[in-house]
Amino acid sequence: MKPAPFRYVAARSLEQALQLKAAHGDEARFLAGGQSLVPTMNFRLTQPALLIDINPLTACAGVQQSGARSVRIGALTRYRTLERDAETARNLPLLREALPHIAHPQIRNRGTIGGNLAHADPASEMPAIVLALAGRLRAQSVRGERWIAAAEFFKGALTTALEPDEMLTEVELPAAPPRSGACFMEVARRRGDFAIIGVACTVELDGDGSCRQARIALCNAGDGPIFARAASASLAGRSIGAAETAAAAALVQGEIDPGGNVHASRDYQRHIAGVLTARALKTANERAQRGH
């Protein structure tokens, strides 16, 4: 299929892109990597009147250390840039581990982190990563700018807190603290497919090797990324062993609401969520004990 007609503007500046979006609202779409938007346009599920191509806005791409303990990623940063970035591997091991699970190299050469988060597919890995890391997202419009906490940003399937005139311009994530470990695991039908279930977790240790704080988030486990509050809280102050990971896995199974589909029933998704939670927590804890 071919897309319906539209007007195309290659943005010359962020200001121009924001002005056009303010003037046209929901009738206009930003075009980032196009890896989610163009397929839906080809099927005519999306028929924007105006496409604002933000690819020329190279200032919105790149990874930066910000302050001592956080990393800022420009919305237009492509997955492949992140995959090759040594700082990302060191400071954001959780995000780094999830990248190869996203689609295929050709898709990762174009797809951007901002486009992914703004698209907010519940099966997508990055929203769960940003939620597990308690990141925050920068939205800019002609009216000004605001920072939105990850927990407030994702509002449900393909729905975010962004207003029709706002562009997501940056994501800020805390760098992995010392004595912490992270792990991302997913089950998919084939390499590059969307996850049947994915689990992201981080474990931060106290001086005595017990867990100071753990955070667990899942993808494709509900109508948005899900932060497993009770399971995460259950680990604080404990030394993580088999009993603790099993208990957390059982809590996760109660906290999620997977939709089920032709490839995986809800029960199967719930089962996988439990298995992956226990494995990912064990691995994250081992990595934390080793110091990375």
Partner: peptide, 23 residues
Amino acid sequence: EHGVCGACTIIFDGAAVRSCLMF
């Protein structure tokens, strides 16, 4: 024409990409 099969892959500025997902 939705990015899945790879038949349309070309090299764009040095990187392999789907030509069906670009204008």
